[in-house]
Design a protein around this nucleic acid. Structure first.
Length: 482
RNA sequence: GACCCUAUCGUCUAAUGGUCAGGAUAGUAGGCUUUCAACCUGCAGAUCUCGGUUCAACUCCGGGUAGGGUUACCA
C-alpha cells in the first residue's frame, strides 16, 4: 500500500485518517506501506496568486516525515513523484502511439461547453498519431505556453458520466518545483501518474477518500489498456471537522502572514500541533480508527479524541493550582502567622507525593488570588473553602476593581462549603495558555510550576489539561490540551 | 443541470433475513471524592419515507426524500 501526501504543508488531523487507515490495514495483513510524496507541480504559474493555489512547500517533506514518526507509522520505501517525470513521458508517448491519447489545444471553457457537455469530440481528437506525436514533442520542447496545450486520454466523449470524458493526463506548467526546479515543463495529472506508479511499484491495495472515486476509473482504464494487473480500491467517506479550518493551503497562508505561530500552531490542527498540545498519538489513532471505513460522510467530534486522550493522560498528569483572570481576595482575622497547604501531586497516586504552597500572614491579613469565574459566583456572607487551606466567609465583592474581602471562618474541611482554587498573592508565576481557537488565557499559577518538566501534560484543577511549552522571564507558556 | 454514492440513538459505530436493535461519546440523576475532573450506579435516546419480496426485513428490491461527492490545465 502507499501513503501519498501532497507536500503542501504538515499533515493535519484530516490527513491522519488516511495514514492511520493504511497503517492499520498493513499491520493487520502483514503488508508493506510506502511513503510516496505526491509532489507534482500543483497549480500552474499563472494561477499561483489566488488564495486557493496549491503548490509544494519545501519544508513540508520533513514536516510530513515528522508527523508520521510521531504517529508511529513505519514505511519501507520512499518515493518522489518529482523523480519520475521521465516515466510518465514514456507511458504518455505509448498511449499516444497506441492512438488512445491526443494533444488538445482547446481552452478549458471551450472544451467543457462546446464538447464535453455536448458529448461531441473536439477537432483535435481526430488527429493522426503522427501529428499527436509531433505536438507532444513540441510540448516537451517548450514550444507551447502553459494552458495552451494538454494531452487527453480517449476515455470516450460519449461516457454517461460527464466527469470521465476524455480527461487530461498531462499539462504544461512553467512553475518552479522545489526539488527539480525548472527541469520539467510538462507534468502529469494525479490520476495518470498513479495509474503508472501503482503498477510499477507493485501496489496491491489503494485506500483513498470517496472524493477520489472517479480517479479509479482512469487508473482502471489505463491498466486495462496495458493489460496490467490491477490493484484493489477501498474508499472511506468524507469527514467533516466542524469548527476547524483544515486546509494546509490556508494554514500556509496564515503562517506566511504571521497570523499563526508556525506549523505547530493549534489552529492548524497539524500533527505537530497536536503533539505540542499533549495529545498522545495512540489517542488520535484510536479515535480515527473507531470511525471505521464507512463510505458515507461523517461528522467528527473532538470529544472522542479528547476522551481517548484523557484516559491516557489523566493518570500521569500532575495537578497544580491555577487561577484564570485573577481577582484579589483578602482574608482578615486569620489566627496564625503563616500558612501552608500540602495538596497531592496526583490524588489517584499518593506515592507521587505532595507539593507545598505556603506564605506569611501579616497583621492577621492574608492575600490570595482566585479566578474571575469563581469570583463571579460569590455572594456576600457565603462560606467557602479554599482547597487544602481554610474556610472563609465573604464580606464584600467589588468585581469592578477585582477585589473581594472576607474573614477567616474555620479550619476543618466541611463538605457543605464549595471548594475553590487559589494562588498566593506574593508567591506565584504568570501563566499563559494558548487555546486551539487561538485565544490566549492569562492567570497565575502556584510557585511550584517553576520547576516542572516541560512538554509533559499537567492538569490545572477545575480548569483542564495543559502542556507546558516554555518557561521564560518567570512566565509559563502552555498549550491547552482539553 | 448531468453523473455517482450514502442513509441506525445528538454524534460515531455494531447487528449470517430471526437480538430485548448492542457499544462508544455526549446528555441527565445519584454515589464517591479536599478538582465542577476522574471513578462507580442508574436513566434517557435510533433503523429517513412509501411500497414490494418473505413465515420473518435495519438487512434484499423499487419509487420518493434528504445529504455528500465528481463534473479543474488541484490533490
Amino acid at each position: 500500500m502507499r501513503l501519498a501526501p501532497y507536500p503542501s504543508g504538515a499533515l493535519h488531523i484530516g490527513n491522519a485518517r488516511m495514514v492511520v487507515l493504511n497503517n492499520e490495514y498493513v499491520n493487520k495483513h502483514d503488508g508493506e506501506v510506502y511513503l510516496f510524496y505526491d509532489d507534482t507541480i500543483g497549480s500552474p504559474k499563472s494561477l499561483r496568486n489566488t488564495p486557493k493555489a496549491k503548490y509544494v512547500l519545501p519544508e513540508a517533506y520533513d514536516l510530513i516525515k515528522d508527523g508520521l514518526e510521531w504517529l508511529g507509522v513505519k514505511y519501507t520505501k520512499v518515493f518522489y513523484k518529482s523523480d519520475r517525470l521521465e516515466l510518465y513521458y514514456e507511458y504518455c508517448e505509448k498511449l499516444i502511439k497506441d492512438g488512445i491519447a491526443y494533444v488538445c489545444f482547446c481552452s478549458a471553457g471551450d472544451f467543457k461547453n462546446k464538447f464535453k457537455d455536448q458529448k461531441k469530440p473536439c477537432p483535435h481528437r481526430a488527429q493522426s498519431v503522427e501529428k499527436n506525436l509531433k505536438e507532444w514533442n513540441f510540448m516537451l520542447e517548450g514550444k507551447y505556453e502553459e494552458t495552451t496545450a494538454v494531452v487527453r486520454l480517449k476515455t470516450g466523449m460519449d461516457q454517461k458520466d460527464p466527469a470521465v470524458r476524455d480527461n487530461i493526463i498531462m499539462r504544461i506548467s512553467e512553475a518552479e518545483h522545489p526539488r527539480v526546479g525548472n527541469k520539467y515543463l510538462v507534468w502529469p495529472m494525479l490520476e495518470f501518474s498513479w495509474a503508472i506508479d501503482d503498477y510499477l511499484i507493485g501496489i496491491t491495495h489503494i485506500i483513498r477518500g470517496a472524493d477520489l472515486v472517479k480517479e479509479d476509473f482512469i487508473e482502471d482504464f489505463i491498466w486495462d489498456h496495458f493489460g496490467w494487473k490491477k490493484a484493489e480500491f477501498l474508499h472511506y467517506g468524507r469527514i467533516k471537522f466542524p469548527d476547524m479550518k483544515l486546509s494546509k493551503t490556508e494554514a500556509r497562508n496564515n503562517i506566511q502572514k504571521g497570523l499563526y505561530e508556525g506549523w505547530d500552531d493549534p489552529r492548524t490542527w497539524s500533527l505537530q500541533s497536536l503533539k505540542k498540545r499533549g495529545i498522545k498519538p495512540e489517542a488520535l489513532k484510536e479515535s480515527l480508527l473507531s470511525l471505521g471505513m464507512s463510505i458515507s460522510g461523517i461528522t467528527f467530534s473532538t470529544g472522542w479524541l479528547y476522551s481517548k486522550n484523557k484516559d491516557l493522560i489523566d493518570e500521569i498528569s500532575d495537578r497544580y493550582f491555577f487561577v484564570e483572570d485573577p481577582v484579589l481576595l483578602e482574608i482578615d482575622e486569620v489566627p496564625f502567622e503563616e500558612y501552608m497547604a500540602e495538596p497531592m501531586l496526583l490524588p489517584s497516586n499518593p506515592k507521587k507525593g505532595k507539593r507545598i504552597i505556603k506564605g506569611k500572614v501579616s497583621n492577621k491579613k492574608l492575600k490570595i488570588f482566585i479566578s474571575k469565574k469563581d469570583a463571579n459566583k460569590l455572594k456576600v456572607g457565603q462560606i467557602l473553602r479554599l482547597k487544602d487551606l481554610i474556610n472563609i466567609q465573604i464580606l464584600s465583592i467589588d468585581l469592578k476593581n477585582n477585589n473581594v474581602t472576607s474573614y477567616y471562618h474555620s479550619l476543618e474541611l466541611n463538605r457543605e462549603y464549595s471548594i475553590i482554587h487559589w494562588v498566593p498573592y506574593d508567591s506565584n508565576i504568570k501563566v499563559k495558555i494558548l487555546k486551539p481557537d487561538g485565544v490566549v488565557s492569562n492567570g497565575y499559577g502556584e510557585i511550584n510550576l517553576k520547576s516542572i518538566p516541560l512538554n509533559t501534560t499537567i492538569q490545572f484543577e477545575r480548569y483542564g489539561f495543559v502542556n507546558p511549552i516554555k518557561l521564560e522571564n518567570d512566565e509559563l507558556f502552555c498549550y491547552f490540551t482539553h
